[in-house]
């Protein structure tokens, strides 16, 4: 069994009990500590136990990417948390939330790109194997081309992740701007929106 799996279980339990303790005034601080411990365990677990497949495919440099990303994020995170004034907390939380959204957006894009290249390689390989490409029925060729996009479940998951991550990112950044009064608190509306909506509602017909 993978070393990481029991550690993930421990991390999950720490998150659940951490949130539980966060919901009572007396235990709130220890709850936060417990959750952060869970996160540390989860990160150690994933760094310590590379998946069976991923290790074969990984380029040697990739561990530098991982450790570099962790270090850069940790330094920036500590600076941001130290520098912010108590009164600036709401916009800081909004901004951090936006970064979280950006992260899931980027994970989805990265997964898509890696998967797309992998599927493309496989599809080309499959086409090459069937030597007489010209004699294949068009539907088969089409099938190979479609498989480049991956399974429907996979695509839906990627699209949902991009959508939610993107909305989280832009929404949180606008919330940050509004909370810090860098942008107006009034609703921001598209100029000529009635015309646009009217046009779009006709365009469907």
């Amino acid at each position: 069994m993978n070393i990481g799996e029991p550690l993930f279980l421990v991390a999950t339990l720490l998150f659940i009990f951490g949130i539980k303790r966060l919901s009572k005034v007396k235990t709130a601080r220890s709850g936060n500590l417990l959750s952060s411990l869970g996160m540390l365990i989860a990160i150690v677990a994933v760094v310590a136990s590379p998946g069976k497949e991923s290790l074969d495919n990984a380029i040697p440099l990739s561990w530098y990417w991982v450790l570099g990303g962790l270090a850069a994020g940790a330094v920036l995170g500590i600076i941001l948390a130290r520098v912010v004034k108590m009164t600036g907390m709401p916009e800081m939380v909004a901004m951090l939330n936006g970064f979280g959204g950006a992260a899931s957006l980027l994970v989805a894009l990265s997964t898509f790109w890696g998967g797309y290249l992998h599927n493309k390689k496989e599809a080309i390989g499959a086409l090459m194997e069937s030597k007489a490409v010209n004699q294949l029925a068009p539907s088969t060729v089409e099938g190979h081309m479609l498989s480049v996009l991956g399974s429907p479940v996979w695509m839906v998951a990627i699209l949902a992740s991009v959508l939610v991550g993107g909305i989280t990112l832009t929404g949180s950044l606008i919330a940050t701007g509004k909370l810090s009064e860098k942008i107006t608190g009034a609703p921001i509306l598209l100029p000529g929106r009635h015309f646009i909506v009217g046009f779009l509602s006709r365009a469907g017909n």
Partner: peptide, 8 residues
């Protein structure tokens, strides 16, 4: 993605 998530 790692950098952003770690900041978070």
């Amino acid at each position: 993605a790692i950098a952003f998530a770690t900041i978070n």
